[in-house]
Simulated assay, not measured.
Amino acid sequence: MSAEDTIVSGVAGRYATALFELAEDAGAIDRIAGELDQLDGMIAESEDLTRLLRSPVFSAEEQERAMGAILEKAGITGVTENFVRLVAKNRRLFALPGMIEGYRVLVARHRGEVSAHVTSAHELSDEEVKDLTAALTSSLGKEVQLDRKVDASLLGGLIVRVGSRMIDTSLRTKLNSLKIAMKEVG
């Protein structure tokens, strides 16, 4: 693997890269991506599961047993199950959400896609999502996958982040800029 292939870094990046290489060899990139998305959803919905991942109070054996039971109940087997069990055994569960995100980045790159993180003040309609996706695809010259989030504190507008680039058209930012400008004047 060359240095330019390393697009995710740190502990989470190394694990995500290793999992991606295993998935590629097994021809199971999409299946594993689906299982990781399922696991990520479970983490997002459960405070107890989040606590299990982050708490140093649980031993590696307890974490591995608990994750094994959760994976079995969710029907997650094979490479993904072995991967999560290894992560637990190595006391790296705290980094699992980052590993999942790193795997998504690698899958998107493999498919020639780009991920755009979009934060809006309200839930975007299907038409707005379609228009935004088309505009970003046209601008970037690559297929774009939107990762959407709602933050009512924006008041209006959008924040779009693609890689290290960010476009902030939120009303909150515009009002803050106006407030700073008014303080400078008066």
Rank of each mutant, 00 (worst) to 15 (best):
K89A: 09
A95F: 15
L93N: 02
V107L: 08
L86M: 09
A88G: 01
G98F: 11
R65G: 12
Y103W: 07
E45V: 14
V87K: 07
M42V: 14
A26G: 10
R31V: 10
G102Q: 07
V87H: 06
G102D: 02
T80R: 03
V107P: 08
I32M: 06
I43P: 10
G68H: 13
L19W: 00
E35Q: 07
D37W: 09
I76F: 10
S55N: 11
Q63W: 11
E101G: 13
P97E: 04
N82F: 01
L93Q: 07
A69E: 09
L39W: 00
E101I: 10
R104H: 06
K89T: 05
P56V: 13
L86E: 00
L53H: 09
R54M: 12
M99W: 07
M67R: 01
A44Q: 14
L71Y: 03
L49Q: 01
A60E: 09
Q38G: 10
A69H: 11
I100V: 08
F83T: 02
I100E: 00
Y103P: 03
S59Y: 00
M99A: 12
E45R: 15
R91C: 02
A108S: 11
N90V: 01
A44L: 11
L52I: 11
R85D: 06
M42G: 08
K73I: 04
A74Y: 05
D40N: 13
A33P: 02
L86F: 10
L53Y: 08
L22F: 09
E61C: 12
G78C: 10
L36I: 04
I100S: 07
D48Y: 14
D48G: 04
T50A: 08
E45G: 14
E64A: 15
E47G: 07
L106M: 03
M99V: 10
G112F: 09
A18H: 01
S59D: 05
N90S: 03
R109K: 13
P56G: 13
F58K: 12
E35N: 02
L93M: 07
R54H: 14
E45D: 15
D40E: 13
E72L: 06
E64I: 06
E64Y: 14
G112S: 00
R54L: 11
A28D: 09
A26M: 12
E47T: 05
E47N: 10
T77M: 01
L86N: 06
Q63K: 15
A88T: 05
G98P: 13
A88V: 08
H110C: 12
R51V: 06
F83S: 01
Y103S: 04
F20L: 05
R91F: 02
L22D: 01
M42C: 11
E81A: 07
A108V: 00
H110G: 15
A23Q: 00
A74D: 03
R104Y: 11
G68C: 12
G27C: 14
